[in-house]
């Protein structure tokens, strides 16, 4: 696997957030875009915060960069002072063409990876991230689908089978791939429950809709409730028109 995928690791660098244990090892085979950012209130000009905090932030980022490099990752880093953390993260995703964002939480050595697969859309990107990050690790991947009543077993097999084929295409050993299906549950609760037995979760971002607007993105909700690291695979961004 020569082409490393860019994974964004956003860290609130001045608020005591650091790179948790196990995360550098987790990303050993990725190209890490290390984003140190600091959110400041509107009363403060970003430049004002920079004058005061740049040195301290740079020092910490140096340290983190070294951790990732020691683990084997290639690293690119940015330091941003912002009023709006989300906007900064979105911009970094676009500028660095990041396939996924890691919500960094501590983990031990990764042996079991949970990959909830929602539907056929975005399967390709999901598979590429899983294969790239975990392909050269000794980890078992479980493809997981929470089906609703109308979905037949055949449909699910087509979906997860297709995903497994894709992973094999990208060079993963098919014997490390398992599938698991649950029915008639709230997908979100089910994913969080099942995830307990896993070391990390890789899931796709959902298209924004009214319910994601009200309740937040499912991926973010899982990240909030699951204690380990979560990879949020970004949906394909349409080329922006000028």
């Amino acid at each position: 696997m020569t082409d490393r995928l860019s994974i964004l690791v956003p860290i609130r660098v001045l608020e005591g957030e650091s790179v948790p244990e196990g995360v550098p090892e987790l990303l050993a085979h990725a190209h890490v875009v290390l984003l140190g950012y600091h959110v400041i209130p509107e009363q403060t000009a970003p430049g004002q915060a920079r004058m005061q905090f740049e040195d301290r932030a740079t020092e910490r980022l140096d340290e983190y960069e070294e951790m990732f490099e020691d683990a084997g990752a290639t690293v690119e880093r940015r330091l941003v002072f912002t009023h709006d953390g989300q906007k900064t993260i979105d911009r970094m995703i676009a500028e660095h063409d990041c396939m996924a964002v890691l919500v960094p939480n501590a983990t031990g050595p990764v042996e079991d990876v949970l990959v909830p697969v929602r539907g056929a859309i975005g399967v390709d990107r999901l598979a590429r991230v899983v294969a790239n990050v975990f392909g050269d690790m000794d980890a078992d991947v479980t493809l997981y689908h929470v089906a609703d009543e109308d979905t037949t077993d055949d449909d699910i097999q087509t979906l997860l089978g297709g995903m497994a084929d894709r992973l094999a295409e990208f060079g993963m050993d098919p014997s490390t791939i398992e599938t698991r299906i649950d029915r008639d549950q709230n997908p979100l609760d089910a994913i969080v429950d099942v995830a307990d037995a896993f070391d990390t979760v890789v899931m796709g971002e959902t298209d924004p809709s009214l319910s994601t607007f009200v309740f937040g993105m499912p991926a973010d909700q899982v990240a909030n409730r699951f204690l380990g690291p979560v990879f949020v695979v970004q949906r394909e961004r349409a080329e922006e028109d000028e």
């Binding site: 970003p46 430049g47 920079r50 740049e54 740079t58 880093r77 940015r78 330091l79 941003v80 002072f81 912002t82 009023h83 709006d84 906007k87 900064t88 911009r91």
Partner: peptide, 10 residues
């Protein structure tokens, strides 16, 4: 700024 330090426009 130099060293990849940026001030976000929001």
């Amino acid at each position: 700024h130099d060293d990849d330090v940026e001030l976000e426009r929001t």
